[in-house]
Design a binder for these strands. Structure first.
Length: 733
DNA sequence: GGCAATAGGCTTTTT
DNA sequence: GCCTATTGCC
């Protein structure tokens, strides 16, 4: 099916058309939620292909998820009927693809593996072990995160070193360069490298940059508000020759600041690309007027935004219902109840409902409720499939075969299943390898040269080496599919779990089977399947990518995950201060604005109806905490919000009085017998206090009630301490 | 070197 | 309160 240019333009409104027709020069499209952003992107691409008569591979399209990329490809192909490969993908997958072709000049080989967070942390632990840095004193997790942020800011280990002051930063300074060198030695890239290494490549080899610069005549970027500075730089480089860059985004939906996304990219696009044109899409086709009114009233509270106001020609629609419940169990019950009524009336089907929450941990109680009710549901996210232990084990075998330099994967599986190659032996091999500058796997092939290893262990090592080497020789002759099946078989990974009759064991066996099915699937759906190709796909895939929105089930996911999606009915659960917005954002205005944008994203997912819920009490960590309703609830235009009390609570108390009471309970903690100096202090997060012994600090958390009430205070030296309020001596600052 | 028991940490969100 | 990683004992 091929559409003509006129047909393409006919399907667009007055706002959308110029954003599609203006093909040349830098363009910023500020697209509000539900304003047909995806439509503009796909039609724009189809329009350029038709009108400019250029090849599909001369357009580069960046999306936020692989799923979005897949859908866009499909739509474009149905519009223009072209089977040529389109360059549509996420930043990470696109540049992984480019690196596979070009990375040779930087001294890596093209079968590099991609390390995920877990691999990074394991590597950091090994490095710290060698340097005698205790992982207890300095957590590998926080070191990883600092390194990641630093890399994304394009700061080199040397430059980092010059700014390091605190003991923690000094430690990072020592580890960082070793980490970088070792990644390279292992022929591995971490997630951040997929963005920063191309920048290095383009800077060091202008001829390679030129090749891609002239090739990509048009560049389209979706979700521009969530790009970081490094990604911006890549776009800047690539668009330099033709200058036809079109970015689409919505500053109000920027929710990845914590991951390094820089909202300045969108706010300052017009400065970054002079002579750019800006188009605004403010008509919303998705939601009822009521929903938009709520969303607008919330987002207006933010200061740092370009400012726009969505409008809708749709009907007024139903009011938003606020479900006030006692705890998370009742919350789940209420959700179940509401869905049940509508489905049994024949009004809706399961797939029309989404239940959203701030943190993955909240899915558990909802899942319990849904399971009991027998309604079908899917949870998107949480522990990712490819991050499960049993899957990572199989993957480690495949990674080692694809890239024998990958000593991190080697260490993971060398003794799993047990082969009698323990820590002691490994350390000897590692030391030997290091002394002759070889990789661990290579060294294992020369195990006879290494002293102080018993012949029994040497035999084990030789067997292991032979096993892996056999597959290394085979990997280019047999399909990745065949390879994965045989290796699982030969190592007995599956048999091991099959023998385990516990539910976990069975689950693991099931997951491995599912994994093997996924490899088969890859082998048939890809033109030239390769082991590295498969591993790359797996490393970059996310749960939302594999989510099947066609199955008839209620969808449960985090608010972040829901970005870009829409549902007729949306539940946003856990609207309690400290949960949503999360505690850590409460005393940081910018973080709070991001939470608010996240709420805005949640609200604008709904087409027809929204339910919000807040619980009086929620078991979140190990404690049952009393919480106040989210401050965001007060920000919703009161004319569109309807409060309905759950049956179990006393409806006679007026809503307002009740909230006031709870505020009293939660905030003015102390009984009368306390020291008078305590009376003045408001014990709540963010308040600064002075402790007679520990000095100045800030309250980060309050838990428990009455006499058991405790405050957690972070002091100036970074230490956190917990105090039973009735004994603690504080003065307010 | 292997296994069971225990300690610790975690819960904000993910390419 | 649960899951994992590490510890200590065999």
């Amino acid at each position: 099916m091929r559409s003509r240019i006129q047909d393409i333009l006919k399907e667009l409104n007055e706002e959308q058309r110029p954003a599609v027709e203006t093909t040349e020069g830098p363009i910023l499209v500020l697209a509000g939620a539900g304003s047909g952003k995806t439509r503009v992107l796909t039609y724009r691409m189809a329009y350029i292909l038709r009108k400019k008569k250029i090849a599909p591979w001369e357009i580069l399209v960046m999306t936020f998820t692989n799923k979005a990329a897949g859908e866009m490809k499909e739509r474009i192909q149905s519009l223009v009927g072209n089977d040529n490969p389109l360059w549509v993908g996420t930043f990470h997958s696109t540049f992984a693809k480019i690196l596979r072709r070009e990375i040779g000049v930087l001294g890596y080989s093209s079968d590099f593996v991609i390390y995920d967070t877990n691999d990074q942390e394991r590597m950091l632990k090994f490095i710290m072990g060698e340097m005698n840095i205790s992982p207890k004193e300095y957590s590998p997790k926080s070191i990883r995160s600092v390194i990641s942020i630093t890399k994304n800011r394009l700061i080199s280990p040397e430059n980092y070193a010059s700014t390091a002051k605190s003991p923690f930063e000094k430690v990072v300074t020592r580890i960082f360069p070793v980490y970088e060198n070792r990644l390279r030695f292992y022929n591995a890239l971490d997630f951040d490298d997929l963005i920063t290494v191309p920048i290095k490549l383009f800077t060091m080899y202008p001829d390679i940059l030129l090749k891609y610069q002239s090739r990509f005549k048009y560049i389209l970027v979706d979700e521009y508000q969530d790009t970081n500075r490094a990604q911006y730089l890549l776009l800047y480089h690539l668009s330099k020759e033709h200058r036809n860059i079109c970015v689409v985004g919505d500053d109000d939906q920027s929710i990845y600041r914590w991951r390094g996304a820089d909202i300045r990219n969108i706010l300052e696009f017009e400065n970054d690309f002079p002579d750019s044109q800006v188009f605004r899409l403010e008509q919303n086709y998705r939601s009822t007027q009521t929903i938009l009114k709520a969303a607008n009233s919330v987002i207006e509270k933010n200061v740092g935004r370009k400012g726009k106001s969505l409008w809708s020609a749709r009907e007024l629609g139903e009011k938003i219902d606020l479900l006030e419940v006692v705890d998370e169990r009742e919350e789940a019950q209420k959700v179940v109840e509401k869905i049940k009524v509508e489905v049994f009336k024949g009004k809706r089907t399961f797939r029309e409902f989404a239940v959203l929450y701030r943190t993955n941990a909240q899915s558990r109680s909802l899942e319990d409720g849904l399971r009991k009710s027998g309604m079908s549901y899917v949870i998107v996210g949480g522990v990712r499939f490819y991050e499960r232990k049993e899957i990572k084990d199989v993957l480690a075998y495949l990674k080692l075969i694809a890239n024998p330099k990958d000593s991190i994967s080697l260490k993971r599986i060398v003794n799993f299943p047990l082969r009698g190659i323990g820590d002691g032996t490994l350390r000897k091999i590692d030391a030997w390898a290091e002394s002759i500058g070889m990789h661990m796997f290579e060294t294992m092939g020369r195990i006879d040269e290494i002293p102080d290893i018993t012949s029994r262990i040497k035999t084990s090592v030789r067997d292991f080496y032979g096993l892996i080497q056999k597959y290394i020789d085979l990997k280019d002759q047999i399909s990745p599919n065949e390879l994965a099946h045989t290796i699982v078989d030969e190592t007995g990974l599956l048999t091991m779990y099959k023998g385990d009759t516990s539910p976990e064991g069975q689950g693991r066996a099931e997951n491995i089977r599912e994994f093997l099915a996924a490899v088969s699937e890859y082998a048939v759906s890809t033109d030239s399947p390769s082991l590295s190709g498969f591993l790359e796909e797996v490393s970059l895939i996310t749960d939302i990518d594999t989510w099947n929105d066609k199955s008839n089930a209620i969808t449960l996911m985090t608010l972040h995950c829901a970005k870009g999606l829409e549902f007729p009915v949306v539940f946003i659960t856990g609207l309690e201060d400290g949960l949503f917005p999360v505690l850590r954002s409460l005393d940081e205005p910018e973080a709070l604005e991001e939470e608010r944008r996240l709420f805005y994203v949640g609200l604008t997912r709904a087409k027809e109806k929204i339910y919000l819920s807040c619980a009086e009490r929620r078991r979140l960590f190990y404690d049952s905490n009393f919480r106040l309703p989210s401050r965001f609830l007060d920000e919703i235009d009161s004319t569109v919000l309807r409060r309905t009390k759950a049956s179990s609570r006393n409806a006679a108390i007026s809503m307002h009085a009740d909230v006031q009471n709870r505020k009293k309970e939660a905030y003015d903690s102390h009984p009368d017998y306390e020291d008078f100096s305590q009376e003045k202090i408001q014990y709540r997060p963010g308040v600064c206090v002075n402790h007679e012994k520990y000095g100045k600090g800030r309250i980060v958390r309050v838990e428990g009630e009455g006499q058991k009430k405790k405050v957690i205070v972070r002091f100036e030296d970074g230490a956190e301490k917990k105090f039973l309020l009735q004994y603690a001596r504080f003065a307010q600052l």
